[in-house]
Amino acid sequence: MAQPRGTAQSRDEMDDPEQDVKAPDTKLYEELGELARFIDTTMKTLSEFSAPVNTSTQQLPQALTHLTNLKTLTEQGTHKVMLEVEAMQDNHIQIGKMIKELAHVLQQAQVAPSLLQQVQQVGRQLGQDDKRLLDIMTALSFQDLVAQSVNKLVTIGVRPVPKAGRQTRPEQSQRDVETVGSDEEYLDGPGPGRRNSEAIRF
């Protein structure tokens, strides 16, 4: 059992100046050795966690690219559908004019009323289809809502991304890893001089 320092040293120790010097050093070495083993164990444990966290962090820019692509693709697809709808709307305008002219001619020619009614029915159905085309057009506003949601996600993801470029290494110091759990840093947000822990936190 270790004796209290400087109080209960034996006469032998007092008589042996070499022993007198070594005893505290030995104890210090023992304590340092224990601390080193503790640090080593802790570092090994933490490094086991850093691998999956690193993987997730590295995949973030890729996820942001996918999100941005999603927005672009839905925008392009929506424009293609709109182009077709607009072409149909333009055709309907022409067909509508032709139906009106045809109805007028049939009326002038005093054809059977049922024939005139059939032509007018075609005109009404065309009008109903116009309404459907307009409904398709307005339904495509989903793309705007999708884009707004994607923009919000990208904005959230972009903030810590510059820090994410710096990877957490298993051989990092204990101090580096300890900052991960610091609430103060988290509340302050990313800033100059921040360590790679921001990437882990994200």
């Binding site: 925008e75 929506t78 424009h79 709109m82 709808v85 607009e86 709307q89 116009d130 307009l134 057009m137 307005t138 495509l140 506003s141 793309q143 705007d144 884009a147």
Partner: peptide, 14 residues
């Protein structure tokens, strides 16, 4: 958003 401009313009045109 270009899609929304197109939708609103289309509605107004109709």
């Amino acid at each position: 958003m270009s899609t929304m401009r197109r939708i609103v313009k289309n509605i107004l045109k109709q």
